[in-house]
Nucleic acid binder design. Structure first.
Length: 268
DNA sequence: CTGGGGATGGGGCCC
DNA sequence: GGGGCCCCATCCCCA
């Protein structure tokens, strides 16, 4: 039973997508990988490289037309915004920035300047700042890419997704987004589909049992680096996430959220 | 109920 | 400009 709620469960016949439509865009994992299953095998990079599958070419430009979602994709409305990363809760209410709201952009800018002046490291770390949204980057290329994708061209968005209402300023961004609809990377073992080759690569580890990320403190190993990182928190005396009310600390934000939802923080 | 492991998504960044 | 990796976030499941 798959645990993921986010990945489309294409092996459910009633929700099976049109594979013939996806066939030409599908990542094909070399048969020997499956022949050797369940032997632990690391998929070779060239197998999953761009040369192994054709890029998605389903997009429209300035398309007023929004096709209905394929039957298997109806749950996509629950996806987090592709442009708005969900940030961890701010340490205090005053630290949060609301660029759309009532806060004066001047005072905001002054605040940032003050903070930089008082912290020389901040100047070093935030050398390149977007003059439109104030977002900062450590490298010029990072800033350039940000402006190209989000700010400078904000007023000339022209690439619309045919599956949903999202619009993008570059073809590359749209192509990346469309993958979340078409899910071109299909696991040949179980039929699960993924938007990116490396997601499929990680998934294949669940079949092979390969766990390349070992904990230096115990003998546990993990298939995913993020899970190792979460595990490392369990070895730490000082947990990263702390309840503002009772000061209890947790190894994961999700545990802190659970704690808060369970009633500790009902006071406010 | 809590803590931890497993699985997965998406944006940012580097090459 | 695109692919791949890194990081963070989130959910489900189970002990």
């Amino acid at each position: 039973m798959p645990r993921s709620f986010l990945v489309k469960k294409h092996f459910n016949a009633s929700k099976k997508p049109n594979y013939s439509e996806l066939d030409t865009h599908t990542v094909i994992i070399a048969p020997y990988l499956y022949e050797s299953y369940p032997m632990p095998v690391i998929p070779q990079p060239e197998i999953l490289s761009s040369g192994a599958y054709s890029p998605i070419t389903v997009w429209t430009t300035t398309a007023p037309f929004h096709a209905p979602l394929p039957s298997g994709l109806s749950s996509l409305s629950g996806y987090p915004s592709s442009l708005g990363r969900v940030s961890p809760p701010p340490s205090s209410d005053t630290s949060s920035k609301d660029h759309s709201g009532s806060e004066s952009p001047i005072s905001d800018e002054e605040e940032r300047l003050q903070s930089k002046l008082s912290d020389p490291h901040a100047i070093e770390a935030e050398k390149f700042q977007c003059n439109l949204c104030n977002k900062t980057y450590s490298t010029f290329s990072g800033l350039a890419k940000h402006k190209q994708l989000h700010c400078d061209a904000q007023s000339r968005k022209s690439f619309s997704c045919k599956y949903c209402d999202k619009e993008y300023v570059s073809l590359g961004a749209l192509k990346m987004h469309i993958r979340t609809h078409t899910l071109p990377c299909v696991c040949k073992i179980c039929g699960k589909a993924f938007s990116r080759p490396w997601l499929l690569q990680g998934h294949i580890r669940t079949h092979t049992g390969e766990k390349p990320f070992s904990c230096p403190h115990c003998n546990r190993a993990f298939a995913d680096r993020s899970n190792l990182r979460a595990h490392l928190q369990t070895h730490s005396d000082v947990k990263k996430y702390q309840c503002k009310n009772c000061s209890k600390t947790f190894s994961r934000m999700s545990l802190l959220h659970k704690h808060e939802e369970s009633g500790c923080c009902v006071a406010h």
